[in-house]
Structures are given as C-alpha cells and as structure tokens.
C-alpha cells in the first residue's frame, strides 16, 4: 500500500514538474568562477600543497552550494563564501596536524591520466643567481606561513594577501576585531622571525647586483 502511494507521488513529482525559470546551478557557477582563484589562493597559502588546495577549494564550493539557499541575494557573496572557506581550512589544518601529510621525495608522481613520472628535484645549491629570486622568496614565505598557528595564518592571509579590513576578517572568522588584531600581531611577529633572514639576504643580493 505504502509502496504504491510512494510510486504515485514519485511519478507526479518527477514527471509532471514544470521547467524552473531560474537555474540555481548556473547562478552558483557564475559566482564560483568569479571567486575560484581567490579561494584557491587562500587554500594554497593555508595548506601549502596544490593538491590539497584544490580539494579544499572544491569542498568549500560544495559546502557553499549546500548552504546557498541561506545566502541573502544582494549581500556580499565573497564575505559569505570566505566564512565557509575560513572554517573549512582551519578545521582541515587542525585535522591534518593530528595526521600529518607526508610525501616521500623518492615516490613517483601519479598524473591525472594515470601515468607515473619521476620526480625532478631541482638542485638550487650551486646557482646563487636564482636562489633569492621571487620564487625562492615565495617559498620562504610559504614555509613561514605553514609554521604558524592556523588562526594566525588565516588572519594574516586575509589581511595581507587578500586585502580585507580587520572588521571584514572578524566577520569571516566569526570573532571580534580585538581578536583579529591580536592574531595578526602574533602571526606577523612569528613570520618576522622566520622571514627576516630571507628578506635580508635578498636585499643584500639586490644591492650587490
């Protein structure tokens, strides 16, 4: 009896339903394409790993889509989205801390096509001209970012890389402006200690040239 009732309802709902005038997926896709580089950038600076950053970006957008009905049209989509990104990245990094990501440099790389490639590890030790170039400084900054507390890291990334104000960051991180100020202060202090040697060597290199 119940089975027939379900079938009848399913029949009516699934077959007789008219076309929808507005596509939710299309609207979401348009917004996602606008913000995906920025979200990926945050995820990469937070995780330090391109594959993990891609997964975090995907997961953030899937979560955003699930909650898309709660997004109020006409309000700032990026702040709403970055709140999801912020929570996801911090949760994921805390989880990863308990289960650290380890990748052997001897391990072969699997491509998306299923092929395997040998890992090429560049030997930079005998090439002083490129040691302190942009790439090296990015690497130094990334290593320094990964060494600090995830909450401090997120506040610094949102402020210095994405250019948000303390008030905006407080909304995204669900905290007070005072806490944001404290996190940025502590984050930059820790970064200063780790990055200053790279910056000093780089400025010496530039002055010698």
């Amino acid at each position: 009896m119940a089975g027939e009732w379900v079938i009848q309802l399913a029949n009516e709902y699934a077959i007789a339903r008219p076309a929808q005038p507005i596509s939710k997926v299309a609207e979401f896709e348009s917004l996602m394409r606008r913000y995906q580089n920025s979200v990926y950038n945050i995820a990469l600076r937070m995780s330090g790993n391109p594959e993990e950053a891609r997964d975090l970006t995907q997961e953030a957008f899937v979560r955003a889509y699930r909650a898309f009905d709660s997004y109020k049209r006409g309000t700032s989509f990026d702040k709403w989205l970055y709140r999801i990104v912020t929570n996801l990245c911090i949760d994921e990094l805390r989880r990863r801390k308990r289960r650290p990501y380890i990748e052997s440099l001897d391990q072969r790389i699997m491509t998306s096509d299923g092929d395997e490639l040998d890992r090429e590890i560049p030997d930079m030790s005998h090439n002083p001209e490129i040691i302190y170039d942009r790439e090296h400084l990015d690497e130094c900054l990334q290593d320094a970012l990964e060494s600090i507390n995830p909450e401090y890291r997120m506040a610094v990334v949102l402020c210095d890389i994405e250019g948000f104000s303390y008030e905006e960051i407080a909304q995204m991180m669900g905290t007070s402006i005072g806490t944001v100020r404290s996190r940025i202060h502590r984050g930059r202090r820790a970064l200063r200690e780790r990055v200053s040697p790279c910056l000093k060597e780089r400025s010496q290199e530039v002055s010698q040239k």
Binding site: N37, I161, S196, L199
Partner: peptide, 19 residues
C-alpha cells in the same frame, strides 16, 4: 617588509577541473 612581501606573493590560478 613582511606585509609587503606577503602582498606581493605570486597569485595562483585555480585548476580548470575544479568546477
């Protein structure tokens, strides 16, 4: 200097496959 260095980090492009 730290703030300026972070601000000038090379921006990255999201992989096409994400959508």
């Amino acid at each position: 200097e730290v703030k300026r260095a972070l601000s000038s980090m090379t921006p990255v492009q999201c992989p096409e496959c994400v959508w």
